[in-house]
Write a protein that binds this DNA or RNA. Structure first.
Length: 253
DNA sequence: ATGTCACAGTCCCTGTGA
């Protein structure tokens, strides 16, 4: 079983890259963020031709999350069931695993209302995970827009006073882990930064100026079954890449 | 800090978000 998460920064603009990546890597389940398209534009039929069922929680111009699966999609949940107008959370059961695709708000700046919204959003996610069925395997993946520790940031000194590395954001991630989840990529790669995002500007990718902000959190049972987790840096190269690379996890029987 | 990208509308440039 291979499960991936990828912020594609517009599925409309990225479709050719996404299609070729699916063909090359053949993941069973993919958690997608930032489709930036309406349901009318979402490529349900092209995905079906590749062997994937898919579900989309779209908003149009901004945000938008989706799940692709070769092993079925049931019990779909869109959003937290509150009045949040932004499409950032979708869950489904794929095979015997409960999966969630998360696009955590950016936050913009520590004194911006969007930062408070980000912390509230992460608290709602933690509450969903507190209340989950502990007997069911779970993967909570996506773009968390937080680097969990300074090791997940190419130069923490540049982020002092900004979002993505602040203590409240990191505490929010620890609260998610405290529900019994493991940051799988870090768990299996303790000595490799495993950056997942590089700014489009300034040649950041080639200078190694990255952050690890895309994670796959898994329950302890799945953690024991995991055989590998890695970042596909190749997907960040070439023509029209997303600014995020896909993160992959592989599980044995 | 910034040598970028994607979107929609003001529609072949500009403002916004990341």
């Amino acid at each position: 079983m291979k499960i991936a998460t990828w912020n594609v920064n517009s599925l409309t603009a990225r479709w050719a890259r996404v299609e070729s990546w699916l063909l090359e890597h053949a993941p069973d389940v993919v958690l997608i963020q930032e489709t930036k398209q309406s349901d009318e534009k979402f490529p349900f039929a092209p995905l079906a031709a590749l062997g994937y069922e898919s579900v989309h929680y779209g908003q149009g111009q901004w945000n938008g999350v989706a799940i692709f699966s070769k092993v079925g999609i049931e019990d779909v949940r869109r959003g937290f069931g509150d009045d949040d107008p932004e499409a950032r959370f979708i869950g489904a059961t794929c095979g015997d695993i409960r999966v969630y695709s998360c696009y955590v708000p950016n936050g913009r700046a520590l004194d911006d209302p969007h930062y408070a919204y980000k912390l509230e959003w992460l608290a709602k996610l933690a509450q969903v995970l507190v209340e989950r069925d502990r007997a069911q395997p779970v993967v909570v993946g996506g773009d968390f827009n937080v680097a969990p520790t300074d090791f997940d940031c190419y130069d923490p000194s540049l982020f002092v006073g900004t979002t993505h590395t602040s203590e409240p954001e990191r505490a929010a991630l620890r609260a998610i882990e405290a529900t019994g989840l493991v940051d799988l990529t870090r768990h299996l790669n303790p000595d490799d930064p495993c950056f997942t995002w590089w700014d489009y500007r300034s040649g950041s990718f080639h200078r190694g100026w990255g952050l690890r902000i895309d994670m796959l959190y898994v329950d302890e049972g799945l953690c024991r079954k995991a055989t590998a987790s890695y970042v596909d840096r190749e997907a960040r190269k070439g023509e029209k890449p997303s600014d995020h690379a896909p993160v992959v996890a592989e599980f044995g029987a």
